[in-house]
Design a protein around this nucleic acid. Structure first.
Ligand code: MN
Ligand code: MN
Ligand code: ZN
Ligand code: ZN
Lengths: 143, 143
DNA sequence: CTTCTATTTGCAAACGATTTGCAATTGCAT
DNA sequence: ATGCAATTGCAAATCGTTTGCAAATAGAAG
């Protein structure tokens, strides 16, 4: 009967915190992000937004994404080939496996890999600021 | 007295193999790639090419890069923020650490990480076609 | 070496994703 | 309610890359 709690970020608080106005377009976009289970791109967010408020513009979507990215509320992923895709920055760090046939994005997490990255960077005399690990693959033929 | 052998790929043979003509612009570009120790972008390759033959066009650089990528002779890297950068596909697989201050690209290789990636993919029911692992960091403050 | 044609070229224009200038609108502190 | 800075929608600009096209050329054939 009880489900895993999917944390919904309080974007409005984050915005207020950043000293930024909470406008109608922003509210709509934030709502879409909050309950997006996927990794939509700007055009897709725009489509979903227009369905709610037809006066929203694509520019505003882009501007809002940049704003949210700036305050660390969302992550931007530039997967191969396509436009940037976004996701709320709630929950733990994870990386992505992209199904090259369907475009599906699957999340995974490996402490071991994260550790090894640190180790490599430090051996090279660097500290990692951020990283990108993307696996591109296809479903394994059912055995 | 003896240096590590830096393998120079025989691009011309690869091209002939692909049933493609060996033209003057292509020869120039191939030469540049052969002795590029870095990961130049199209514009940089264009600059180096023009220094050798001023009649070469940027379009031809792009077309040639696509051709070479198609026959697997070079790799294209779309590092964050900038244009695609290229490198000859000789030698073993490696991944990259990008110095976010200088833009320098440092190569590294981790069998352990490669293994873990395979493991993760197979657990998710996928086979990896290719992947991308990029570390973005800055030089660690001299201790 | 010349001829012949399919391939390749340079150029300019088109492209897709994203950003920007600007005048009109709006959130919100007073 | 008022006033103004922040934000918007729109159109035009930008950046890296691709493409259509007519002119040039590699290289096979003779
Ligand atoms: Mn994700
Ligand atoms: Mn490399
Ligand atoms: Zn990671
Ligand atoms: Zn790798």
């Amino acid at each position: 009967m009880n489900q895993t709690v999917i944390p919904k970020p309080d974007y409005e608080a984050a915005l207020r915190e950043a000293g930024v106005r909470i406008t109608r377009p922003r509210r709509v976009i934030l709502g879409i992000l909050s309950d997006a289970g996927d990794h939509p791109d700007a055009m897709e967010i725009f489509r979903r937004a227009v369905a709610i408020d037809s006066s929203i513009s694509l520019s505003t979507v882009y501007r809002t994404m940049k704003l949210l990215e700036g305050i660390g509320a969302i992550h931007r992923h530039a997967f191969e080939g396509g436009p940037s895709r976004f996701e709320p920055a709630v929950g733990d760090h994870h990386d992505h496996l992209i199904d090259i046939e369907t475009g599906d994005v699957i999340e995974f997490q490996s402490d071991r890999i994260e550790e090894l990255q640190q180790e490599i960077a430090r051996e090279l005399g660097y500290e990692i600021v951020h990283h990108r690990l993307e696996l591109y693959g296809r479903k394994r033929r059912r055995r």
